[in-house]
Design a protein around this nucleic acid. Structure first.
Lengths: 256, 256
DNA sequence: TGTCTATAGATGTATAGACATCTATAGACA
DNA sequence: TGTCTATAGATGTCTATACATCTATAGACA
């Protein structure tokens, strides 16, 4: 009788599959991703059919199918019923989280990046609106930074952060002119909850001046808010993007 | 012998499941989403176990399992091995593509959805700007639809589409008041390239009137463009979102 | 009373088999 | 030569079954 593969005890050894304690379909996904990553299966190339993989790897078709189906959902593969499975080009979609990191985008385009610090302060007595956005019940200090990001000396993004110093230690001590700010927050906050909101607002006088646009011009606002349970600590990030700069993603697949 | 459910011919009638030509697991997903949307299964509530759903709906456990697994991956459910399946708070993560599908979002919130068709036409002689956006070299007809989406009779989104009739057959013949428009495009276009652009613009007089906002108010615009190789065919979708409505995603992990 | 243990019940993974559906193509035929 | 058709081969879905694993809990036991 054929038994299924136990996850913890006696692992079934399969040719070409890794030997870690993962479910079989995960190993198959890794196997496929490896073959794509190291160039064995080039872009737009047809990959082995389910039947081939089934006999090559010694697993059932349903298991192969699940692995390929998930990889397709994740954008790594493209499947056409009756025809076959093909390798998709690198990355398909970007999530909202990726949008907010404009620094890497500017650098990826080969442009010159520069940041200018406008404000860096500790607000000892924040007003009610600010406290509410942190979901604080009583008054407590808040740290605030306002930075303008430049692409080739053109201001493209205004980034305003309100940080709870209890959550993020030494926030104001960073080097804000480097690209590391975003990463710093990502790693220093024990992320438990995240919220992204995108909206459009007219530029205030101040924002217009900093971004070199006219007052009341439309700005894209991305608000990224993270906090931990019990609402003890919150980080708010507002990103204002001038109209000359759009955010987006592009997916360019096989040219046949 | 038990036969599986054919998709096109004699549909198997199941209690509580819709009667459209969808795979069974999709119907089960819809069934679950409906129960979440209309409040039958409140937030954090335990939903029926796989075995219960299996006997209630008259399908195999694997099919139920697939539906629940995909809903979990999409952030609608949370599952704990050995304990059960629970309804997750509103939305987990959304990609840019999902943003543009406001219909399912409205329904998921349990709101009443309604669409109103403003314009439905075939433009025989499109102007240069329109031709250029399609990357057409010579003049050819373009089909155009303009629809307002309502949530509880409040206009929240204006959706404008320009479609190449050579690519999408019978586009104007659809029922635009149903939720199926988005799905129709997804399935009828052999997707090869997609581009998403998000920007902020002031509302024109017309847009302001349709969305019940003031002229020059800021609008969020999501442009989704798809086309095939050689730029023979293009679909352009502009989504204008009034300021009362923000787009976003929220991630709320288990409350312990 | 407190601790340990067996177990029921839930989800997670894997397999084998059957049938459905789609596409390209070889081959029949006019 | 051109058109139609049957078919091979690929993916898509569904079922039935088996076993693995995890968690909460009832009940045995000290």
């Amino acid at each position: 009788m054929i038994k299924h593969t136990p996850r913890r005890e006696t692992e079934k050894e399969l040719p070409g599959l890794s030997n870690t304690a993962l479910p079989l379909y995960e190993k198959i996904k890794d196997f496929v991703l490896d073959n794509i990553g190291n160039g064995n299966w080039p872009q737009n190339e047809k990959v082995p059919s389910e039947h081939e993989l089934m006999s090559t790897l010694g697993v059932s078709r349903m298991t192969v199918h699940r692995a390929l189906r998930e990889l397709t959902a994740e954008g790594h593969l493209r499947r056409v019923q009756g025809v076959g499975t093909f390798v998709s080009p690198p990355k398909a979609q970007s999530t909202l989280i990726e949008i907010s990191n404009i620094v890497s985008e500017i650098k990826a385009r080969g442009s010159r990046y520069r940041a200018e610090v406008i404000t860096l302060e500790r607000i000892k007595r924040p007003d009610q609106a600010l406290l509410a956005s942190f979901e604080f019940k009583k008054a407590q200090p808040v740290e605030h930074s306002l930075i303008v990001h430049y692409e080739n000396d053109v201001p493209v993004q205004l980034e305003e952060r309100y940080v709870n110093p209890e959550l993020v230690k030494n926030y104001l001590d960073q080097d804000f002119t480097s690209a590391a700010t975003y990463d710093y927050l990502q790693h220093s906050t024990p992320l438990t909850e995240v919220e992204h909101l995108i909206s459009a607002v007219p530029a205030t006088e101040r924002h217009a001046r900093l971004l070199h646009i006219r007052e009341h011009d439309s700005c894209l606002v991305l608000n990224r808010k993270t906090w931990t349970g019990q609402t003890v600590a919150t980080v708010n990030t507002f990103t204002y993007v001038g109209s000359r700069y759009t955010l987006g993603s592009r997916y360019l697949p096989p040219a046949k």
